[in-house]
């Protein structure tokens, strides 16, 4: 028996586990580093002007993001209104009717791919559908693009949540003579409403930061406007344009916008996890 073999195995183990811990540390450092620079650079820009003034003209100091904030709220708001019912109903179909059918399997496959599919392609599709046909960019087109991105998120969380409902709960409702739609809506969906809300929240978090599909659907608008039929300012596109600009004032605003988006996304993620976690498992 050679002790050298044992020493080598011990050493390999130590090196492997150290590297693994280092990888974990690297991931955490990455997260903290991004957050720190974001808030360090961003909070300076987040003053009253940021929320009350519109985006400034090139090279001028001051200004804020009011038009972009309003635009983002409206675009994401409408996209949420459209995608939530569609996503929930499609999710119900997959969970309650689509256990074995080929159609449901295909839908499930497609939704899973759409979850990770490049969002810029969705932008192209909506451009062909809703921009090229009417010959101008619009907030509605932006909403449509975001809704297409949100639907798969809602579908999959709804289905996964409904699959957690014990069969006995459905059977009990059926035994009382309830029709199937009532069982679905008033019993099973109700039992997992926390989880479904989580899904909707996560979809909103996803939409708020989504830039690529808005680049050529909602485009941008320098002025304060609530008209969804016209090009519309929105946070991600303004951040992109301003960050890539040579003006330090604009870059400062871009940091502020990025910090705002990151705050909202992190808050939603944390709320979704902490507040609704127990209800999901119940």
């Amino acid at each position: 028996m050679s002790t050298r073999l044992y020493q080598r195995r011990k050493l390999t183990n130590a090196v492997g586990l150290t590297l693994s811990s280092a990888a974990m540390a690297l991931g955490l450092i990455g997260l903290l580093w991004i957050l720190w620079t974001l808030f360090y650079n961003g909070f300076a820009a987040l003053d009253l002007n940021f929320f009350t003034k519109s985006t400034p003209a090139p090279g001028t100091a001051g200004g804020g993001m009011a038009n972009a904030i309003l635009g983002s709220l409206m675009i994401v708001g409408f996209a949420t209104l459209v995608s939530t019912p569609i996503g929930i109903l499609a999710g119900i179909y997959l969970a309650e009717y689509g256990k074995t059918s080929k159609f449901a399997a295909a839908t499930r496959f497609v939704t899973d791919i759409m979850l990770s599919a490049p969002s810029i392609v969705v932008g192209l599709f909506v451009f062909a559908l809703a921009v090229a046909t009417v010959k101008h960019f619009s907030g509605w087109a932006g909403s449509l693009a975001l809704a297409l991105i949100a639907i798969p998120v809602v579908v999959r969380t709804t289905e996964n949540m409904l699959n957690l409902v014990p069969g006995s709960l459905r059977e009990a409702a059926f035994a009382l003579g309830a029709p199937r739609w009532k069982v679905s809506l008033a019993v099973t969906l109700r039992a997992v409403r926390g989880g479904v809300v989580t899904g909707v929240l996560l979809a909103i978090a996803r939409m708020i930061g989504e830039t690529a599909p808005l680049l050529f659907t909602a485009l941008n608008n320098q002025f304060f406007s609530a008209n969804m039929s016209q090009p519309m300012a929105n946070l991600p596109v303004v951040i992109y344009n301003f960050a890539m600009s040579p003006y330090p004032d604009w870059q400062q605003l871009a940091w502020g916008g990025a910090a705002l988006i990151a705050l909202i996304v992190l808050a939603i993620n944390i709320v979704a996890r902490v507040v609704f976690r127990d209800k999901v498992q119940a």
Binding site: M24, G27, L28, G30, L31, W33, I34, T37, L38, N41, L202, A205, R206, I208, G209, E210, T211, A212, P236, I239, Y240, A243, M244, Q251, A254, W255, A258, I261, A262, V265, L266, N269, I270, R273
Partner: peptide, 24 residues
């Protein structure tokens, strides 16, 4: 908590990575 931190990293919008990559 560490698992959640990694999942949070997955939730950060790509534009944040972009601006961080460009300026930092």
């Amino acid at each position: 908590p560490l698992g959640t931190a990694i999942e949070l990293l997955a939730g950060v919008p790509s534009i944040i990575y972009g601006i961080w990559g460009l300026f930092v």
